[in-house]
């Protein structure tokens, strides 16, 4: 009687141990196995949008420093701080997913039509090195106009990439940030268009 009870206890403890281990293993693994992989749209977006944002920050900080129109300077401050913070979020995703900030596939390969949208290897809306050099050297109204023109194109390209990831992902975190980017940049597109009108200039 004692022995059978002991055996029963042993079996129960063993079953419990196996159950706990299994539960622990599954609980530990599932978030890791469901995290986006190295070639996923989410990882591609996080990497490419970080690069895209980095250039926006560069241009926006030039606007904050060199803009003549107070609206241009204010918008520059807003874009630089928001997008640099978003870069931090996207870089943290990559780390949480156990991925490198640099991918193995070509730029924009995560988007269905992504690689056709590259111009001279640059992602949609990115300013060329020549345009950036021009912006660095521009002053006064010329600066304001060129900044608004370049940032308008940059935002439209960025929104295109956001639409790309929104059609590919079901990750709530990614969707949330992407939708926030789209809403914010769409609003800023309007501001940039209004600034160009005020400056008596046209989009590129």
């Amino acid at each position: 009687m004692g022995e059978s009870r002991r055996r029963l206890t042993l079996v129960a403890v063993a079953a419990l141990a196996v159950g706990v281990l299994l539960g622990f293993g599954v609980g530990w693994l599932v978030p890791r196995l469901t995290a986006p992989g190295d070639d996923s749209a989410e990882a591609g977006f996080a990497r490419d949008m970080s690069s895209h944002h980095a250039q926006a920050v560069e241009m926006a900080l030039l606007a904050y420093r060199n803009g003549e129109n107070p609206g241009v300077r204010q918008l520059g401050y807003d874009i630089a701080t928001v997008q640099q913070a978003q870069i931090g979020v996207m870089q943290t995703w990559l780390r949480d997913w156990g991925l490198s900030p640099t991918g193995s596939r070509p730029r924009m390969a995560w988007m269905p039509d992504g690689q056709q949208s590259l111009e001279n290897g640059l992602m949609p809306g990115m300013a060329t090195p020549q345009q950036l050099e021009q912006l660095r050297n521009a002053k006064g109204r010329d600066f304001d106009v060129l900044f608004c023109q370049l940032m308008l194109r940059h935002h439209l390209g960025g929104i295109h990439m956001v639409d790309g990831v929104l059609s590919e992902t079901s990750d709530g975190e990614v969707q949330g940030l992407a939708e926030g980017m789209k809403a914010g940049q769409t609003k800023e597109v309007k501001i940039l268009q209004d600034l160009l009108t005020d400056l008596n200039a046209k989009p590129l």
Binding site: S50, S51, A54, P101, R107, N120, G121, L122, M123, P129
Partner: peptide, 9 residues
């Protein structure tokens, strides 16, 4: 250059 252009860092 193609590995560098448009790639920050």
């Amino acid at each position: 250059a193609s590995k560098v252009r448009g790639q920050e860092m």
